[in-house]
Design a protein around this nucleic acid. Sequence first.
RNA 1: GGUUCCAUAGUGUAGCGGUUAACACGUCUGCCUGUCACGCAGAAGAUCGCGGGUUCAAGUCCCGUUGGAACCGCCA
Length: 581
Amino acid sequence: MIKVNKYRTHSCGELRIDHVGTKVKVSGFIENMRDHGGVIFVDLRDQFGMIQLVSNDNSMFSELTKESNICVSGEVVKRSEEMINPKLETGEIEILVNEIEVLGKSKNVLPFEIKESTDVIEDLRLKYRYLDLRNKKVKDNILFRSDVLSFLRNKMNSLGFTEVQTPILTASSPEGARDYIVPSRKHKGKFYALPQAPQIFKELLMAAGFDKYYQIAPCFRDEDGRKDRSPGEFYQLDFEMAYATQEDVFEIGEEVLSETFKKFSKKEVITPFPRITYQEAMLKYGTDKPDLRNPLEIVDLTDFFKNITFPPFINNSVRGIKVENLSTKPNSWFNDLNDYAINNGLKGLGYIKVNDDLSFNGPIAKFLSSEDCQQLISNLNLKPQSVLFFIGDKEEVVSKLAGTIRTALGEKLELIDDSRFKFCYIIDFPMYEYNQEEGKYIFSHNPFSMPQGGLEALENQKIEDIKAYQYDIVCNGIELSSGAVRNHQPEIMEKAFALAGYDKEVLETKFPSLYNAFHYGAPPHAGMAPGLDRMIMLLREEPNIREVIAFPMNNNAQDLMMGAPTEVSEQQLREVHIKVR
RNA sequence: GGUUCCAUAGUGUAGCGGUUAACACGUCUGCCUGUCACGCAGAAGAUCGCGGGUUCAAGUCCCGUUGGAACCGCCA
């Protein structure tokens, strides 16, 4: 594990009963000191573990402070039976100290206690991240991340993928997230941009004849953070395959992710990953990133309510969510849920309770005739004590609102089985979607996806019906990956862009490399890019992505430790031809 | 950009109109030869984020502001 040198013969964690009698030298951090007058105990910590030092001369440690770094020479001695500490891997032995050298002294008052750092307010942890990372739990996340990275690299290599590094300083891309831009010194008024993803480069690698590419790729996006979204930068396992179909990518994606999750977690990983169309996901789960651990499903009741005069639902779409064994909850429970619904954009949350005799009560029951009731019972297989919730609103928003209620019910009723990873592929994303603000159709995901049906579909199908070979991988409600079969034919690109209102010139000027490259005989290709940070976050069951990043920025895209972003000198600004107003 | 919540010794919290702002951990001093969340005795340590207002009286109530977090927007 370690190299023997003047600082140490062993790590703190590796010493065992077999070492009794040997002279050793160890270095590490002072985790704790317990002075008993005639005898003093010191816990010494390094990355590999902890060992207890003991001395009958407490003056040896009198000048020392906790968290100082010291080098200790001594002899490994056996602890008597009753002194063994079973909580410590080195608990059967201790080091009887001969000599101490102070390698680095710590201030006696720390910004926070290392052992309790995860309970400390996050600004402070991030400002003193090097101290926070001394905490075993925090450090273990980063060590774990290293193991996952190593596994992923081995896996991709063994599958025949070639790791290629692509530029960090590149050109701004007009679509998508805001770019981080870097001013050019040599070219006045011009800027580099940090890549939002290596998308264009990996496609160019395909055009260059590389068969399978991957990279643990940094991605930079100037967008606001979330607890599962690191602002500024994050990493993806980016890969792309030539002469590959959507199925080929799915095979690799499932193999890599399921093996990684099986290896690095005790939770059950359900394979094969089910395929759910975007349309079905929006209807059944009210989101394109469904948590399949939640057993509740949404049903479409729009047609059913066509003949029923419940005023709020007239001319609206209606969704239902059936929950069994719920009618005995007190009214206050339903009122709380209704309040939650209203706070989350619903106008109200109607429901019916199914009585033991299969009659209904509840706020909406009186609007339903007995035939209506019969129809609902048989269509939805309603059982006594079930509750059927109704979500009614405009077609554009009703699915999402129903999804909000589905999630809330799943959480409130603790229906989510936390012992599993439930992956799925969301497939058949629409190529375009109508944008109210711009009053036109825009690309709903990636403008470089191949439309299903190719040129023929673009020419003949209604624009809202055109689907792309565009897919996501979702795990436990978290979007882990996007991907697509790419559009590699200039004519199809031209037509695809034309439908979004862009002429050929846009392709030529905004995406010259890709567009030109595809005029020289590119292979069909497809790929995806699972988010590495999110994978680690899921595997470690961390609620916040910053917990799995060594030096994260805060939610406001600041590095509190480095002070970034910082002002720069006038001279630096002059050199890059920038004037700050 | 919007909404909600939060801000009190080094750290984490309590205090919700009325003496000297409390507790735990940490720090410092002293005692202690077997602890490992050591123990015991003592001490230091707080412009209660900042500004204004209400009040006889504000850490506490109100308004503003700053900073943080979560959510919405945004994230091809």
